[in-house]
Simulated assay, not measured.
Amino acid sequence: MDISAEKLKRVRLRHNLSQELLAKQSGLSLRTIQRLESEGGGSAETLHALCATLNISAEQLQQHSTPLQARWQRTTIISRLLIFILLFTALLSLMGKASATSLASYLDLMSLVILLGFLTLSTLACFGVNGLIKAISGLKYLASSQLYQHAASRDLTRLYQYIYKNCYVAAAIGSVIGLVSLLELFATTGNVNQFFYGLHVLSILWLYAAIIAELLLRPLIYKLTEASE
């Protein structure tokens, strides 16, 4: 039986029981109670002992693993996609008008590779392959019209909050590395125009970070937070 660590702790506190007292009344060891509240899990006998002691049903302690569900509507998906395309087109248009140089200089592919590479590696390091897969597959909920309340949305929210922060961390790290390179180049050549042009190009890293964080992740985090409350 998969006992929810969060639910067990919440029910224990609701009954004004310490871990020691709950262990004594249920006939379980204190170590078992501590492990259940930190890791979850447990056998059927443990679940029944806790339910009998706390006078609750098994469902009130079990961890449900049903996938997050969403209501999909074709009009919603199409409208969200069109909005994103219009926003991205508007950004490109503004960038083209604001610059005397070619638009290609702004669309620095290496900046996008650096940003996505950092996000991928940091997510893998903290959440593993399953976390990375969840982060990618969870993007589909951006086009959903409604998410159903479920505990799974809380886990996905924490994952996206971590990636959201890392978008700007990656932009900051990339900017520092680029600035150091520009300073070394300026010290060698003394070309002021090239230096300021390089600073101009570095801003594209922040633009990519803002697009991913604010246009993709922030709406997802908001929607998932609403579903988990």
Rank of each mutant, 00 (worst) to 15 (best):
A104I: 15
I136M: 09
E45T: 10
S203I: 15
L156P: 05
S38M: 12
K223A: 00
L182V: 04
S57F: 08
L36I: 06
V113H: 00
S228M: 07
R12S: 09
A172Y: 08
L109G: 04
N130Y: 09
S144A: 01
T89V: 15
S153C: 02
S93D: 11
E184K: 09
S26N: 07
M110N: 06
F195K: 00
L54P: 02
T101G: 14
T189M: 03
A90K: 05
L207A: 12
Q161D: 11
L30W: 10
Y106K: 03
A170P: 00
H15S: 12
D108R: 07
Q60R: 08
Q146K: 11
G190L: 05
N16Y: 11
F127Y: 15
G27Y: 05
I33W: 11
L91G: 15
F195P: 02
I212N: 00
G117I: 02
L119G: 00
L185E: 13
S145W: 02
S29T: 15
A135P: 04
G117E: 01
L36R: 09
T120A: 10
Y222H: 13
Q63D: 03
L50E: 02
A70P: 04
A58K: 05
S43C: 04
A151Q: 14
A170S: 03
T66W: 06
Y148F: 07
G96I: 06
I212W: 04
I83V: 13
L82M: 13
L28R: 09
F84L: 14
G42D: 08
L91N: 11
S38H: 13
R12M: 10
G27T: 06
Q63G: 01
Y197C: 00
L220Q: 01
L202H: 06
P67Y: 06
N193M: 10
Y164S: 02
T89S: 14
M110Y: 08
S93Y: 15
K134L: 12
M95Q: 15
S26D: 04
H150S: 14
S144T: 02
I212T: 03
F84P: 01
L61N: 04
S79L: 13
C51V: 09
K7Y: 00
L220V: 02
G178L: 08
K7C: 00
G198P: 02
T75F: 09
A172H: 06
S181V: 13
E6D: 08
A171S: 08
T101N: 11
I221Q: 05
E6W: 04
E226T: 12
L216K: 00
I204C: 09
S137T: 15
L224C: 04
A104D: 12
A52T: 12
Q25P: 07
A171K: 07
Y208E: 02
Q146M: 01
L199F: 06
Q34N: 13
G190T: 05
V169W: 13
K140Y: 07
I204V: 12
A151Y: 09
G117H: 01
T188S: 14
L8D: 01
A151L: 07
A171C: 05
L115A: 01
R154F: 12
L82T: 13
A151P: 15
D2W: 09
A23N: 10
I33Q: 12
A44K: 12
L115D: 03
K134T: 10
Y208K: 03
E20A: 15
H64P: 00
